[in-house]
Each structure stands twice: as C-alpha cells, then as structure tokens.
Design a protein around this nucleic acid. Structure first.
Ligand code: MN
Ligand code: MN
Ligand code: ZN
Ligand code: ZN
Lengths: 138, 138
DNA sequence: AGTCAACTTGCAACCGAGTTGCATGATAAA
DNA sequence: TTTATCATGCAACTCGGTTGCAAGTTGACT
C-alpha cells in the first residue's frame, strides 16, 4: 500500500500484492508477529492463502527484509528489518507472550568460551514484563 | 542403573525404571538430547513408549532434575541439571547442530532496557563451532 | 504484439514434534 | 487388604509448518 513498502520490495524482486500486504503489516506492527497473527490481520482486507503467506515470509527473510525469531512455543515470529542490522536482542513478555525486538540494545557480554569452541554469533533473549503488562494495579 | 541416579530421583518421588533410565541417559550425555535421540539410545536396552518418555521428561523438568532448551529447529533438547543452578548460557554448533550447556559460563551483560520493560531473566545462546567440528583439516 | 521461461499463487495432501483420553498396571498409604 | 494415587502404553489427535502440482502472472526477448 504505502509507496515505501512497495519500493522496498521492488529493490529485491517482484512487488506482488501479497508481498506488499505482508511487509506492510509487519512494518506497522509494534511487536514480532506469528504466522497466525498475520493471517488474522491480513484477512481483514481480502483473502490470502496460508501457504502463500508462509512462502512470502520465507522470501522476505531470504531477502533480508524481515527476520524470524524462534521461541519457546515452537512458533516463528516475524519482524520487518529496519535499515540497520540489529544485534538480535529480544524481549519476551512472560505474561502476554509478545516478543519485541530491542533494536538499539547492543548488549556487551564478557564471555570466555571453553577451549575448542569457536565463537560465531550471540543471541540474547530477555524475559520479563512488557510495558503494557507492567501497568500498576489500579 | 547407577545408585546416584536412583537416589536423585527418590529425593523427588517414585524412582520408576523409566525415570531412572532416562535420567541416567541424560547424565551420561555430553550434550543436550532431543526426544528422538533419547528414544534411540533407550531403545538399545529395552523398550519405552514415546509418550511415557515425553511424560518422564516433563516430570524431570518439573522436579528440577533436568531442564529443556528450545532451539531453532522447533525441537526441545533436554539436559540433566547438575547441583548448581546454571546461568542458562548455551552453545549451538552451526555445523552438527548439537547444543551444549555452558554451565560455568556466567556471562555478564551490560544492558539498559527501554523504559517500561521489567527485567526477569536473560538467556544467552552462542552460535559457532563445537570442539568436535573445529578439527583442523588434515 | 507474441512467445516462452521463470516466477508466484492456491489447493490438497502431507509431515513430525508434541499432546490428550482412556484403560490398565504398579505403588503406597490407610 | 483395601483403596486412592500415580505411572505406563496405546491410539487418536493437534497444530505449525512443508511439499507436490497445476494454474495464473510477470517480464524479457524476439
Ligand atoms: Mn529482532
Ligand atoms: Mn543448560
Ligand atoms: Zn506483555
Ligand atoms: Zn559440532
């Protein structure tokens, strides 16, 4: 819909309606979305096949326009990738289950791996309460 | 089998053959094991129902004798818990897929959460090459 | 424009890790 | 020994995700 979304996709391949709709939805979201959540939101303005949605998501990840987060509920969550490559720090709310990307939180760890291990990359997940779930009781 | 394993379980409940066999297998393992890997290893000395294995694993986790690790392949991996509560730092080999617990690696992060978020716990996963996969080419 | 290969979509069937219901077996307390 | 509680085995099920294939769309090249 929005021209920026379409331009983003065009820079990587064919800007099909499905791709534009999905990326648009991801860009608008404030937290990472599951396939099911996307399906629900997209259904509000037309139909989109389950499998097509899976394939569009895979394609977006492949193209670096989105990334997917694995969680404890065996469900992938997807998030549009901003201009900057982030440090993959994520926040999982233990109350509502939502997952937020902490884009500008680049954690610094001091770690010494046991001998023989070769460091590749690190992924940090914080568990706790998100702002919405952290409302003081009335 | 080993008396220590049986004692460990007895301290938490009934030491059934299935529980002893499973925990014994976990204690002997050098990396975290999937349900499938356990099934395979346990099959070598007798039969054990798939569902029973799932339930035994749940029970061990519930009792604090094991803990489970979620990964990118949507498969739980289980690991016996030593005496000390570890800091949940894990190493996932990007070549062989094995997951190792870095028990004595207690990473220190410097992180500042955005306002509104309440810190609960942190989980750190390192990706890279495990010692076995890091053999220099001959 | 017209042709054709490459890509995209939809549908149905499938996969596999994990779960549930229920009947049967073992165990421990009363 | 009776009885309630817990553990096991089997079948059927759930559910997120994948695969095969036929039909539709796109775009490059005559
Ligand atoms: Mn992220
Ligand atoms: Mn661990
Ligand atoms: Zn929340
Ligand atoms: Zn390895």
């Amino acid at each position: 819909m929005s021209p920026t979304t379409e331009a983003l996709i065009l820079s990587r391949g064919r800007a099909t309606p499905a791709r534009v709709r999905v990326l648009d939805c991801l860009l608008r979201a404030t937290s990472a979305l599951t396939h099911g959540e996307l399906e629900e939101r997209l259904a509000r303005d037309g139909t989109l096949d389950r499998v097509t949605l899976y394939r569009v998501l895979d394609w977006l990840v492949e193209q670096g326009l989105a990334h997917k987060i694995s969680g404890e509920d065996r469900v992938w969550r997807f998030n549009a990738v901003g201009r900057e490559e982030h440090g993959h720090a994520h926040f999982r709310c233990t109350r509502c289950g939502q997952v937020f990307c902490l884009d500008d939180l680049r954690p610094s760890f001091a770690l010494a791996l046991p001998p023989g291990y070769v460091f590749g990359s690190a992924e940090l997940t914080i568990r706790g309460l998100c702002p919405a779930c952290n409302t003081p009781r009335v």
